[in-house]
Design a protein around this nucleic acid. Structure first.
Lengths: 154, 154
DNA sequence: GCTTGACTTCGAGTGCGCTCCAGGGGGTAC
DNA sequence: GTACCCCCTGGAGCGCACTCGAAGTCAAGC
């Protein structure tokens, strides 16, 4: 349960499978805030550094936030909506209803997207089958005889 | 079965659900060639126009090519690959094997994409469920009593 | 002290797929 | 003839999500 002071940006990037550029970009773009080092550390040199130039530390909470962020990105939610969602998360528990609404609407979009992809996939597979039938005559596989006319079509 | 001289670019765009800009862009980008008017027409003015400035006519063959092109685009195939595929189509029947290969590889990509989307969708749905359980206490629906602690999490 | 390496900032650059614009053609309607 | 509408071209612009570069900071190792 202890935050254990978290990972550096490089480690976090590695673990999440994105670039450090992307992580910084997300923060710059207002998607989330990441705490910085100077708070408490084992050996305390005189001063925590310059306050800018302070290194980010990614704890469990940031990581799980980012994991979900990547889920949203991975389903094509635009940055602007993600920004809104993350702001709601930061704003506390009484934004749950609105967050839910946002996710439900996105869920519908994703479902539709999957359906459309499935349709298109079907069309691609049909074309492949057509090529299989046509290709039995010339190049690759040797199967039993079907008529080998090139009756139009691509 | 007769080509009936085909549609204008505006009509084709309307029918395919894209903009005329996009159709011209596809052609400019080498995805396909579209025949032009000046061949044979009812009233022949002295000269068929300037040869540039000649209007495109979209016949069944162009339309079905475009429909499949849109399937490929709709599944995220990049323009460069589509260009290759379309070149193979133009090149004639003995490119069928290579076309097939291209489509099969894309098919795999789309299948993977759908799977990934499904995974992400699951994560989103779980989050929604979590919000449902949390939200029973405060804002929207009134259901029977579950414990209403906010035990961590976004 | 100097180098190395991972971090910091801000701003500019990239790639993709359109999308739009200026400037012009040409045919039909009034 | 001139208004209208759809068509043409080449090139510029846009939105998105990164991606990279220059210049600087800091801690650790030799």
């Amino acid at each position: 349960m202890l935050p254990a002071a978290g990972l550096s940006i490089g480690e976090a990037a590695l673990r999440l499978g994105v670039s450090v550029h992307t992580l910084r970009y997300y923060e710059r773009d207002g998607l989330l805030n990441v705490p910085r080092l100077p708070a408490a550390r084992e050996t305390e040199t005189v001063q925590p550094p310059d306050s800018r130039h302070a290194q980010r530390r990614y704890g469990e909470s940031e990581l799980s936030l980012l994991r979900f962020l990547l889920v949203l990105r991975g389903t094509g939610m635009p940055m602007s909506l993600i920004r809104r969602y993350m702001a709601l998360v930061r704003a506390g528990e009484d934004t749950v209803a609105e967050r839910r609404e946002l996710l439900v609407s996105h869920q519908r979009a994703v479902t539709a997207q999957i359906a459309a992809l499935g349709e298109n996939l079907k069309a691609i597979e049909q074309k492949i089958v057509k090529y299989d039938r046509a290709g039995g005559c010339a190049p690759l596989p040797a199967s039993e005889g079907t008529s080998c006319e090139t009756t139009g079509g691509h």
